[in-house]
């Protein structure tokens, strides 16, 4: 064997071992979700269940529906999806128009406002948490979904930055030619910039969806009634109610929350990885 192939073999061995370490927690979650309850607590641990209890998923899904009078996970899932969809729509629309102003138009104060916009990414949410809560309370929005999706319609520093970088790569001759033809800025934005910007808009949509799906603090602060809970709040409730008794059902519930995110990732891998890479490199 040459030195080179020894090296390749070594790298593959290390990568394989690390892969196992990284996969085990997720494997353990899914396998626990499929086990009968007695088998979750065996020592040494059972890597494959003696019987595959797919009904655990159905049980986790409908858990507590008799007392509550509705299927909690269905309601939580619907709530989460509704909030996420409204947030994604808002983020895509608002950030696109705002980024257009920053990237493609000249106006006094633009660069200053952009610098301030970037600086606001440093502000940690806990600093403004109380006044924002008080504001929504004043508007009577506590207990509704509005605090969780309305702000998305007003743009966000990170997305503006991301889209601006992308818009700037589009040759300015395209807009100039359209202007000479008498097109309005709105027409240029809609007909020229937007169609070209689809990949970047997809990244914004993807990240907004993930953030919304993931959000825990927001729903915890603003939602009161159990019927309005999101999946993350629902899962927390589930966990604290049944403190560690039915691990197989809890893992099934957890799998249900993770699954859409992973599926989404597999369908959009390229945009996803590129989007994350951009966030780190152009900062």
């Amino acid at each position: 064997m040459t030195a080179r192939s020894v090296r390749t073999l070594l790298i593959h061995t290390v990568l394989l071992l690390l892969s196992i370490v990284f996969i085990i927690p997720l494997y353990w979650m899914i396998i626990t979700a499929l086990k009968p309850i007695e088998e979750t607590m065996l020592q040494p641990p059972r890597w494959v269940p003696s019987q595959w209890q797919w009904e655990n998923f159905a049980k986790a899904f409908t858990y507590g529906s008799e007392q509550l009078g509705y299927i909690p996970f269905l309601i939580y899932g619907r709530n989460t999806l509704l909030i996420a969809t409204l947030s994604v729509a808002g983020a895509v629309c608002s950030n696109a128009v705002v980024a257009y102003a920053f990237a493609r138009l000249r106006w006094p104060g633009r660069d200053l406002l952009f610098a301030i916009t970037l600086a606001t990414m440093m502000v940690p949410f806990p600093v403004i948490m109380v006044p924002v809560y008080a504001l929504f309370k004043e508007m009577g929005w506590i207990g509704t979904f509005r605090p969780l999706w309305v702000p998305a319609w007003f743009g966000n520093a990170f997305n503006i930055f991301l889209l601006r970088q992308f818009f700037r790569t589009i040759p300015s001759e395209l807009s100039e030619a359209a202007r000479i033809d008498g097109c309005s800025e709105w027409a240029i934005f809609r007909e020229i910039i937007l169609p070209l910007a689809r990949p970047a808009l997809a990244v914004v949509a993807l990240f907004t969806f993930m953030a919304s799906w993931n959000d825990f603090l927001g729903p915890l602060i603003y939602l009161m009634d159990q019927r309005t809970f999101t999946l993350s709040l629902g899962l927390q409730f589930y966990q604290s109610q049944h403190g560690g008794t039915q691990w197989n059902l809890l893992m099934a519930a957890s799998t249900i929350v993770i699954a859409p995110v992973i599926v989404l990732f597999f369908f959009t891998q390229k945009q996803f990885i590129q989007g994350i890479a951009v966030t780190g490199l152009k900062g």
């Binding site: 799906w213 993931n214 825990f216 993350s232 709040l233 993770i258």
Partner: peptide, 9 residues
């Protein structure tokens, strides 16, 4: 993995 699932797992 969403944070809530991370915690539970």
């Amino acid at each position: 993995v969403p944070m809530i699932s991370l915690a539970v797992l």
